[in-house]
Design a protein around this nucleic acid. Sequence first.
DNA 1: TCGCTATATTCGCTAATCCTGATAGATTGT
DNA 2: ACAATCTATCAGGATTAGCGAATATAGCGA
Lengths: 106, 106
Amino acid sequence: MDEQGYTLQARMVKALAHPTRLRILALLRDGERCACEFGPLLGLGQPNVSQHLGVLRKAHVVNTRRDGVRIMYRLSDERIIEVLDTLGRIARDQFVEAAAALGAVA
Amino acid sequence: MDEQGYTLQARMVKALAHPTRLRILALLRDGERCACEFGPLLGLGQPNVSQHLGVLRKAHVVNTRRDGVRIMYRLSDERIIEVLDTLGRIARDQFVEAAAALGAVA
DNA sequence: TCGCTATATTCGCTAATCCTGATAGATTGT
DNA sequence: ACAATCTATCAGGATTAGCGAATATAGCGA
């Protein structure tokens, strides 16, 4: 892959690199949702949610569709679920590993 | 997953979210490498490389081993390759898609 | 010990990210 | 047209990331 390819890839990864955005994506795992749902579900304010959705949109991680007043969000690519699942497992395993290492010390 | 889980996951994802670090990880795909290799291979200065390696280290994306004066780096988890491959394919496909859309306009 | 190489860290700066509060745009129903 | 709702964007200030230059640290060999 060339240097520009890594820049493109990094742009997408950066869009995933925030707990709120990961939580939004987890909510989109089972299908599309109205933008209005995320705020109440995550306990966040409307502008904050909208900005995070904007980050995901600009990075083409999600697509949107208008339904009257509402904007429906969905994952742009099913493989994103796979990526998030694997990353989640890696993070969890390493957390367990780190905890075990701490336990061994004590 | 709980909120803290997403924070942990985000911390790991953030560590991947830089073109230089993606390039470093690509070089580690086939096995461990000396820290000294990355600078020349990537055309970057030593402090810069060391800082990026530090980010990957703190996020436990890579592990290290000392071999005399040299520090050998390797991926901490094979599944990271899988994640990067999938992300790379997604990014590439979307780039192609965007290019096609531009072409359709012209 | 001294010098040499390889790494890591610190510092100062610039740029980017994130959050909140206020404002603007778009769509529907009356 | 107007009001109500949903969504996006702007403005600000605080925090964090990134980089280069300089400085520290660690191991090796003479």
